[in-house]
């Protein structure tokens, strides 16, 4: 009694998958942009001279890095309303991704900042730049350049991790898949195809980040 695969059963529902891909993309783009921004601020705080702020950020980083994303998501979506913070599914998913990526990128970017030679900073100081100016003009770009591959990998991980946002009924790609298999009872086929979609998305995202990196860091050769 062999099972007959029927991938055709997905075709009528392609719109759901398409919408899911769009939403996953939205989640990822917003999560990545704001999350990395948060990471830059976190890394700045970690490197700053204010020990209290640095320690608070350190606690945030460790808390996030040592708990599952799914639990963070549940806490934000189900737990925060107890504090009067009521979020939609999408908002909760985006916030969880931002908070999660913010912690990881804080650590990654911090490593990049620590790798900037002290001489660079002293040169900037000798030119009378203040702390903010030094960070903005001298430190951050070379630091990001150094850790761009690691940061890119982390962004891909967060994109793939967003798959569990289906659990709070955020209507991303996995949610679409769950919905379809409930309609056509073709769970394996649906998840197989959706896995392929995620694979393609992660490859595209990786490529996109590489192009972005080239744009940000590789300079126009004038010679």
């Amino acid at each position: 009694m062999a099972y007959k695969f029927d991938f055709g059963a997905i075709v009528p529902h392609w719109q759901l998958l398409f919408d899911g891909v769009i939403l996953t993309t939205e989640l990822t783009v917003i999560g990545a942009v704001v999350g990395v921004g948060l990471g830059i601020m976190g890394a700045w705080a970690r490197a700053s001279r204010a020990p209290v702020i640095s320690q608070i950020v350190g606690v945030y980083v460790e808390l996030i890095r040592n708990t599952p994303f799914l639990v963070q998501l549940f806490f934000i979506f189900f737990g925060l309303p107890a504090l009067g913070v009521k979020l939609t599914e999408f908002q909760a998913a985006v916030l969880a991704m931002i908070v999660n990526l913010g912690a990881y990128s804080t650590e990654i970017i911090r490593a990049g900042i620590l790798a900037i030679p002290q001489g660079q900073i002293e040169a900037a100081q000798s030119l009378a730049m203040n702390r903010v100016q030094i960070f903005r003009y001298v430190v951050i770009l070379p630091a990001l350049k150094k850790i761009w591959p690691a940061l890119s990998s982390q962004i891909v991980i967060v994109m793939l991790g967003s798959s569990v946002c289906s659990q709070i009924a955020a209507e991303e790609l996995t949610f679409g898949a769950n919905y379809i298999q409930a309609l056509n009872f073709r769970a394996f086929e649906v998840y197989f195809v959706v896995t392929g979609l995620y694979l393609v998305m992660s490859i595209l995202l990786r490529m996109g980040l590489k192009v972005l990196g080239n744009f940000l860091f590789e300079r126009r050769r004038h010679v």
């Binding site: 793939l160 569990v164 289906s166 998840y191 896995t195 995620y198 490859i203």
Partner: peptide, 9 residues
Amino acid sequence: GTPLLMQLF
């Protein structure tokens, strides 16, 4: 390159 959730599914 794929979500752990999909692998489990």
